[in-house]
């Protein structure tokens, strides 16, 4: 092995070793776009962006990784509703949401491309608290309170 090849191998080895030791690396370009004064909650990552509940007017927000900026979510947020939990599919097109509105807690699906928001009923009735949607957008997992117990329920979506 030539000296040059040896040095190349050594450099690659050190580089790989360095990567293995790397832990969490803050996304310095994106994090300032998220943080606001107040409490942020319920982060949910897609391949193309992140949804979360922002403080202040307590709205669901969407940060697009390709642009580094937020995008509007027409028809999703209401000033009189309080979002509790949000989850988004891999493409960032279908959102699942639990929110409190007029004293009731409801489970909803939002289609971003169509700006369409639809409620989903639970049978038997229960109070949803947390929701997760699969990356392909076809399955919901919902944490539901029934009779003083927490249960997790799976729902197939059309």
């Amino acid at each position: 092995m030539s000296k040059k090849a040896f040095l190349y191998c050594l450099f690659s080895f050190l580089l790989l070793g360095g990567c293995e030791g790397q832990g969490l690396q803050p996304e310095l370009g994106l994090n300032p776009r998220i943080s606001q004064s107040g409490d942020d909650s319920s982060p949910s990552l897609a391949a193309t962006g992140m949804a979360w509940i922002a403080p202040g007017s307590a709205q669901v927000r969407w940060l697009d990784f390709s642009t580094g900026f937020g995008s509007p979510l027409p028809g999703l947020n209401r000033s009189d509703a309080q979002p509790i939990s949000v989850s988004v599919d891999r493409a960032g097109k279908r959102f699942a949401l639990v929110r409190s509105l007029a004293g009731r807690t409801e489970l909803l699906i939002y289609e971003r491309n169509l700006a369409l928001l639809r409620p989903i009923g639970l049978v038997p009735a229960g109070v949803p608290a947390k929701v997760a949607i699969s990356g392909d957008g076809r399955v919901l997992a919902v944490q539901v309170s029934r009779g003083g117990r927490w249960q997790v329920e799976l729902l197939d979506l059309p």
Binding site: Q25, L30, G38, L45
Partner: peptide
């Protein structure tokens, strides 16, 4: 994506796992 508690405030931050 992590919700972090720091000095009484909750923030969401993004981290890479290279």
């Amino acid at each position: 994506g992590v919700q972090l508690l720091h000095r009484g405030q909750l923030d969401v931050e993004l981290f890479n796992l290279p």
